[in-house]
């Protein structure tokens, strides 16, 4: 383990920008973790609004139901660490806008819900932003089985999760496992940015 004081860590991270694609379960929790350790800038994009059913895992509050997720997230980060610059895009990400939105990011955290969107982001980055690191989440549903959650690496793509448990009626995404994977993504961001 690389040893650095928190002051040294903050100094390095303050100069860095992380893109977070999606501001739901993975994105909101990952963003808050990175904000707490002093990342300089977060660029996040999501088209969705906070709903009651999100509160079992996403970093939002009951009085934020109905708000756009990216603006609610920006508000929450400002309350935790106002020094973090949050650029919030209330848009649906697609192959056309991803290079524009995340072009200046040191790396990109994939924090979508749907597999189709995860694949779209990976394909877009591989094709249009070659070399850029993507930290993905895959396999977060259910509860228990801590040790099944891991990270696999393939070139510039890292995937955190159990790679197995897909969300369905009997396997809901819930705060503990979603939080673990979001935390792993944030932890990997730090590991890569701090060297």
């Amino acid at each position: 383990m690389q040893k650095k004081t928190f002051k040294e860590i903050r100094t390095i991270l303050a100069a860095r920008t992380v893109g977070i694609a999606g501001a739901g379960g993975l994105g909101s929790n990952c963003a808050v973790a990175l904000a707490r350790v002093g990342i300089g800038r977060i660029i996040t994009a999501d088209f969705d609004t906070v709903s009651e059913s999100n509160l079992n895992r996403q970093y939002f509050f009951k009085d934020q139901v109905g708000m756009k997720k990216v603006f609610a997230l920006k508000e929450n980060i400002a309350r935790i660490n106002p020094e973090v610059l949050v650029e919030a895009f209330d848009i649906m990400l697609d192959p056309h806008n991803i290079p524009q939105v995340f072009g200046n990011c040191d790396l990109i955290v994939e924090a979508f819900d749907l597999a189709e969107m995860k694949i779209m982001l990976a394909e877009t980055v591989l094709e249009k932003m070659p070399g850029r690191i993507i930290i993905m989440g895959s396999g977060v549903a259910g509860y228990g089985n801590n040790d099944s959650i891991k990270t696999v690496k393939s070139g510039n793509i890292y995937i955190c999760g159990d790679q197995e448990n897909e969300t369905c009626e009997n396997l809901p995404p819930l705060a503990p496992r979603v939080g673990i994977v979001a935390g792993m993504q944030a932890n990997l961001v730090m590991e890569i940015l701090l060297g």
Binding site: D113, L114, A115, M136, G137, S138, V140, A141, E164
Partner: peptide
Amino acid sequence: VSVLHLISGG
């Protein structure tokens, strides 16, 4: 060759 399998949830 990498074959990455992605699943929904997040």
